[in-house]
Design a protein around this nucleic acid. Structure first.
Length: 439
RNA sequence: GCGGCUGUGGCGAAGCGGUUAACGCACCGGAUUGUGGCUCCGGCAUCCGCGGGUUCAAAUCCCGUCAGUCGCCCCA
């Protein structure tokens, strides 16, 4: 038997959750006027290596790299930003007079990681990118979009926004140097990973789980103390914009992020560890003012975030969120061959009228047909036998009340719609009435 | 990339070396050929993730492999 590849899974029962979340994402994007962009699932390996960073965990051990039949080095996208930036440059979107240029994406990402709770090799993200300005208001606007998205899913009080700033290129470099100088006498005491980070990317030592609590790291200089005046002002403006929007946050000086392209504002959305196992980040993002230029475009500051959909859904489930499910409105039950021929065509007519209809196609016994109607959780069962066939009527049984009435087949559609809409709880018939009214 | 645990029908789960693989739920058929959900009767794993080994004998022991799961690293 073939089985799915490690770290992948089939979305079946969860499909309604994804639909709900994706719908919220596109709806929020519409409100904030982010245009949808769909970029390829794979790109030249070089693109990700250059943008994400050669020494990052993502590139050094988690990318899906392969050589295609033409000998090209190809990589399945591990995150969304690099591809969007590539498309931004290649399609000359910087020429668009609407600045900032605002885009959102929804799609699968691939990381060759060891799967565990909240982590698979193929996963989905909703992300947003805003190009063309350093304005702190834009950072705040993207965060407002994320906040609105979480609010739409009633998740805003389950998450905490952790935020920090790395400063611009110079501040970042100055800080890295200061950090190195501070840690120099302690290098020997650091874990093996951090000894490597000391060379490659000292900032990452700050959020190391092993050394993060050590005295040397605790007493390390803070990013804020090494910021250029402008950088500090910029960060303060982001925060004041968030205050103005009443978006809560925690300034977290140890927050560094694992991708090299970040500058200035960086942030993560975290949930209680208990909800997601050891994974507590549901999304993250920040500013990447150098990346567009690094990848060959004109100097273009930008900012954006990515949010993991399956982690989000995991939290939604734990909080009791249930997506609206599809319901079968009517199960048409036939007694006898002649009647079966009629239910077959009747089902079609009613579907054209906007009802969700099931009927027996296998010649099942009456008892078996009733069982099927239960399995489908049909709101109504329509029973058609010789008598009804001759009279042009049908017996309509309301599964909620068990009441059965005989009515004309021609009145079925109207009767069912009326009664479904009059019902306080599900089944929801908004879809069928919309379609019905268009006819 | 590293470590722990796990893998028996659609699902849950017993069996842990001795020969027809418990049981519960679900499902299917019948009692009841035009009205189901209760009850009763019957059916439903040529086989215990896969491959190999040990043994007279393996679902049960060993090795490998695949998958799941949890943790580390890191991130979504």
């Amino acid at each position: 038997m073939y089985q799915r590849m490690k770290g992948t899974y089939d979305v079946i029962e969860d499909a309604p959750y994804f639909r709900a979340v994706e719908r919220a994402a596109s709806e929020v994007s519409r409100l904030f006027n982010f245009k949808e962009i769909r970029t390829p699932l794979f790109e030249a390996s070089e693109l990700f290596h250059r943008s994400v960073g050669e020494t990052t965990d993502i590139v050094s051990k988690e990318t899906y790299d392969f050589t295609d039949r033409g000998g090209r080095r190809v990589t399945l996208r591990p995150e969304g930003t690099a591809g969007v930036v590539r498309a931004y440059i290649e399609n000359k979107l910087h020429a668009d007079p609407r600045v900032p240029g605002k885009y959102y994406y929804l799609g699968t990402m691939y990381r060759y990681d060891r799967p565990q709770k909240g982590r698979t090799r193929e996963f989905r993200q909703f992300g947003v990118e805003s190009f063309g300005t350093k304005s702190p208001a834009v950072d705040a606007e993207t965060l407002a979009a994320a906040h609105t998205f979480f609010r739409a899913l009633k998740l805003q009080d389950a998450l905490t926004l952790h935020i920090n700033t790395l400063g611009g290129r110079e501040s970042k470099a100055n800080y890295a140097a200061a950090l190195r100088a501070h840690l120099e006498p302690h290098v020997e005491t650091l874990c093996a990973d951090c000894q490597r980070r000391y060379q490659d990317n000292p900032l990452r030592i700050l959020d190391c789980k092993i050394d993060g609590d050590s005295e040397a790291v605790q007493n390390a200089p803070r990013t804020l103390d090494h910021l250029a005046a402008d950088d500090r002002k910029n960060f303060e403006e982001v925060l004041s914009h968030l205050d103005a929007l009443q978006i809560d946050y925690v300034v977290d000086h140890a927050l560094v992020r694992g991708l090299d392209y970040y500058t200035h504002t960086v942030y993560e959305f975290k949930v209680d560890a208990a909800l997601l196992g050891s994974q507590n980040a549901i999304g993250g993002g920040g500013r990447y003012d150098e990346l567009v230029e690094t990848l060959g475009g004109p100097p273009t500051p930008a900012t954006g975030f990515g949010i993991g959909l399956e982690r989000l859904i995991h939290v939604l489930k734990q909080r009791g969120f249930t997506p609206r499910e599809g319901h079968v409105h009517l199960y048409l039950l036939a007694i006898g061959e002649e009647a079966r021929r009629r239910t077959f065509t009747l089902a079609h007519e009613l579907r054209l009228g906007g009802l969700v209809v099931e009927t027996d196609l296998l010649g099942r016994s009456v008892k078996a047909q009733f069982k099927q109607s239960e399995h489908h959780q049909a709101a109504f069962v329509g029973i058609l036998g010789e008598t009804e066939l001759a009279a042009g009527t049908i017996n309509l049984k309301d599964q909620a009340t068990q009441e059965e009435q005989t009515l004309k087949q021609s009145e079925l559609l109207k009767t069912i719609k009326t009664r479904l809409n009059g019902r306080s709880k599900a089944p929801d018939c908004s879809d069928c009435t919309e379609k019905g009214s268009q006819k």
